[in-house]
Amino acid sequence: MKKALAIALVALVALSGVFAGGAQESAAPAASDNLIVVGYAQVGAESDWRTANTQSFKSTFTEANGYRLIFDDAQQKQENQIKAIRSFIQQDVDYIVVAPVVETGWETVLKEAKDAGIPVILSDRMMDVSDPSLYTCWVGGNFIKEGEDAGKWLIDYLKKQGRSNEKINIVTLQGTIGASAQIGRTEGFGNIVKTQPNWNMLAMQTGEFTQAKGQEVMESFLKSYPDIDVVVAENDNMAFGAIDAIKAAGKTCGPNGDIIIISFDAVAAAFDSMIAGDMNVSVECNPLHGPRVAEIIQKLEKGETVDKIQYVVEEVFDTSMDLPAVKATRLY
């Protein structure tokens, strides 16, 4: 009796796994027509950003554009991605695109792809492999540049306000320590801070990329430092938390407030926040890798060589723009 129940339980858990991920899309066999067949091993669908990334690939690699896309959702598991890459090799696709879940453990399967003569393009995250010739190139956002863009925006903004020579007190809400976005954005913004002698970085603390922690840490900052001029939040969610904490402390923020809010990612909710006048600026982290990957594939088709590291274009959005119009054109 107990054993039967235990078996039933195991079956239930296994089933729930299947349901949680949704049915995998059936892989179409490699075409014999003129279409370029691209296999994309995606991480999963854990965020808006990821969904927009998937959508970008699906809308770029259409049959009308001369491609056939075989899409695989790995549900955040490396073994699923390795399985997907092997099945791409078996189907003899023309190109493999991978957004790796983790950095390590890819050597064997990439070697198999290389032996089969299929170029591998990495999207979003890097792979840590001893032989860089195992993949053709990497496409993604430049987190250091995002940090620098935020710093440059602040220089311009202060100049416009006539505060260039004032002492500016800054606090930073860092992302999860060790995440590539946290490392890059902290470094990039730090590079600009070094060039501005009147900028004073009061404190940096992690808000773990969440709204709740961002709010908690900001509450503490406000008590320790009564004269904060700028808050740098390394993603939008932490900025939302910080804005709530600032309002609760009886201060104001945004273009017409006491405290300047700088944020990253530029998700839809960040546009709402800027339109509402709470946030000053958000630096985009562009998920639309599809067109850039298509460009690379076209170059490779012509037999040209491509750069190993390719950044996507990322913009800065602030309250001086016509935000409702910009928001209407955005996919995420």
């Binding site: 860092q174 320590i177 404190a203 940096m204 503490s220 320790s224």
Partner: peptide, 8 residues
Amino acid sequence: YAMGVSAD
């Protein structure tokens, strides 16, 4: 937080 210990 109050003592300003760094996150790492």
